[in-house]
Simulated assay, not measured.
Amino acid sequence: MLVDDDPLVRSALALMIGGQPDIEVIGEAANGAEGLARCATDRPDVVLMDIRMPVMDGLEATRQLHARPSPPRVIVLTTFDADDYVTGAIAAGADGFVLKDTPPAEIVAAIRRVADGEPMLSPSATASLIRQIRTDNAETSNGSDREAQALARLSSLTEREHEVALAIGRGLSNAEIARELFLSVPTVKAHVGRLFDKLGTTNRVQIAICVHDAGLV
């Protein structure tokens, strides 16, 4: 599903994505409210969501989608990479944040990756998120306390789980972790699932934050 108030952007994305053998564009919407309605009827697997739109912006639409049962994956696709937009998108439940000037092949790769359950942040978005995390840490808690707490959480992991957690902290995908650690992708996915349980996290970004808090990446 494409949600963007610019019809030229939607047309360009539809043309680019529609040419992929494994991806189908099933609907378009011109604002967040329309996108919510279309998602309820068309039930897409992935939504490409603009941020700045009339009627309802992309962050609020993402927040409302995320509150629904079995929500679609959401990739925020925007021309802006300000820190507030990145952290706002993640807080709203977005699974990815990609700039509109990202090469087409990378946008397509992001769709596939998010559809497979892995978050996708552009390099600039990742840098913005890390900056915000460090700022929040400095403002809300003693850095050594956060590091000790993160290390304590990670101490419950097996050696292999610890290796997978560090790889996630470095931003590697499941396929990249599998190649680096000489594991199968299903085995990596199983380790990631155990990390969610042991660390009390619900997504890979939270695992990465824990690893960064521990000072291990």
Rank of each mutant, 00 (worst) to 15 (best):
L2F: 06
L2M: 09
V3D: 00
V3N: 01
D4P: 03
D6L: 14
P7N: 11
L8A: 14
R10H: 03
S11F: 10
L15V: 10
G18V: 13
G18Y: 15
G19C: 11
P21M: 10
P21L: 06
P21E: 08
E24V: 15
I26W: 05
I26K: 10
I26S: 11
G27M: 02
A29P: 00
A30H: 04
A30D: 01
N31V: 12
N31D: 15
G32C: 01
A37W: 01
C39L: 05
C39E: 13
A40H: 08
A40Y: 06
T41F: 05
D45M: 07
D45K: 11
D50Q: 05
D50C: 01
I51C: 08
M53F: 02
P54C: 07
D57C: 07
T62G: 01
T62W: 14
R63D: 03
L65M: 08
A67M: 13
R68W: 11
P69V: 15
P71K: 02
P71Q: 06
P72Y: 12
P72W: 12
R73F: 10
R73Q: 12
V74E: 05
V76K: 01
T78H: 04
T78A: 05
F80C: 12
D84H: 12
D84I: 15
Y85Q: 03
V86S: 09
V86K: 07
G88E: 08
G93E: 02
G93I: 07
A94P: 04
D95E: 07
D95Q: 07
F97R: 11
V98D: 01
V98A: 01
L99V: 14
D101C: 06
P104I: 15
E106Y: 14
V108G: 07
A110S: 06
I111Y: 13
I111F: 13
R112E: 13
R113A: 00
V114E: 10
D116T: 10
G117M: 08
P119I: 09
S124T: 15
A125R: 05
S128N: 09
S128R: 12
L129T: 10
Q132H: 09
Q132N: 11
I133W: 11
R134M: 08
R134A: 14
T135M: 12
T135P: 03
T135W: 12
T135S: 13
E139K: 08
S141T: 14
G143A: 10
E147D: 06
A150L: 00
A150C: 06
A150S: 10
L151D: 03
A152P: 04
R153K: 14
L154A: 05
S155D: 14
S156E: 10
E161C: 07
H162F: 08
V164E: 01
A165F: 01
A167V: 02
R170G: 09
R170V: 08
G171V: 15
G171I: 15
G171N: 14
S173Q: 05
S173D: 04
S173H: 02
N174I: 11
A175C: 01
A178S: 06
A178L: 04
R179S: 04
R179D: 13
E180V: 12
E180M: 13
F182E: 13
F182T: 06
V185Q: 01
V188S: 03
A190S: 12
H191K: 02
H191D: 11
V192C: 01
V192S: 00
G193H: 05
L195H: 00
D197E: 15
D197V: 14
L199E: 02
L199V: 04
C210A: 15
V211T: 04
H212S: 10
V217L: 04
